[in-house]
C-alpha cells in the first residue's frame, strides 16, 4: 500500500486543472451516479514532467476497497488523454468527511434513492437515531434497521410511512 503525504495542491496550472477535471469526471465504482469530484475524494493533480502525472486520492473509509477501482479508472482516463505515466497516491490527511460531498452530489444521491449525509454541526458522529428523510416519499418518519449496510459508508433504514427500506450515507 502506497500512502503519500499531501503535497502543495494549490496553484494548479491550466493543464493540471484540465487533468483534474478529467480525473474528477470518473464515476464512483460503487455509487456510479456520483463523480469522484462530487464525492470530494480527489485531492490534487500534479504534472511532474511532460507526460508524467501524480494524482492524490483520499479514501472515504480507510479500508474502502473501491479506491483500487478508482485508481485504475483514473489511470485509464488519463492514459486515454495522452498521459503515459500516471501515479495515483493515497493521502489520508486531512481525513475525508461527508461534508466534502458537493451539493450536486447530495442531490444526485437522493435522486438515486440514497438518503444523503446530514452536515456536521459539532465534533463526533451525528447520532444515527436522529431523523433522516426517506428518499422515496420524503417522510421524516424513518427507522434505523442496521448501522452498517451494503458498504461501510451506509446505514440501512426503513421508511415508516411508505415501508420502503433505503440506504443512508452515514455522516463521517
Amino acid at each position: 500500500m502506497v500512502t503519500g503525504t499531501a503535497a502543495a495542491t494549490a496553484a494548479m496550472t491550466p493543464l493540471e486543472q484540465e487533468l483534474a477535471r478529467l480525473a474528477g469526471s470518473v464515476p464512483d465504482p460503487e455509487l456510479p451516479v456520483l463523480t469522484l469530484e462530487e464525492l470530494g475524494v480527489l485531492r490534487g493533480v500534479h504534472l511532474d514532467s511532460p507526460g508524467k502525472v501524480t494524482v492524490q486520492l483520499t479514501p472515504t473509509y480507510t479500508g474502502c476497497p473501491a479506491i483500487e477501482a478508482m485508481t485504475a479508472d483514473i489511470e485509464q482516463v488519463l492514459h486515454e488523454n495522452g498521459i503515459p505515466d500516471v501515479s495515483v497516491v493515497r493521502v489520508l490527511s486531512p481525513a475525508w468527511s461527508t461534508d466534502d460531498i458537493s451539493a450536486e452530489g447530495r442531490r444526485k444521491l437522493a435522486e438515486f434513492g440514497i438518503a444523503p449525509p446530514r452536515p456536521h454541526t459539532a465534533e463526533g458522529p451525528v447520532a444515527l437515531t436522529l431523523s433522516v428523510r426517506c428518499p422515496h416519499c420524503g417522510s421524516t418518519d424513518t427507522e434505523l434497521l442496521s448501522r452498517f449496510s451494503s458498504t461501510a459508508c451506509k446505514a440501512l433504514r426503513r421508511c415508516v410511512a411508505c415501508r420502503e427500506p433505503f440506504d443512508h450515507f452515514k455522516e463521517l
Binding site: M1, T3, G63, P65, L145, F148, S149, A152, L156
Partner: peptide
C-alpha cells in the same frame, strides 16, 4: 443478515487501518 453485514463492515474498517 444485517448483523452479518455489520460485522463484515467493521472488519473491513479494521483491515484498512491495519494495512496502513
Amino acid at each position: 443478515l444485517e448483523e452479518e453485514v455489520a460485522l463484515a463492515n467493521i472488519a473491513l474498517d479494521l483491515l484498512g487501518q491495519a494495512r496502513v
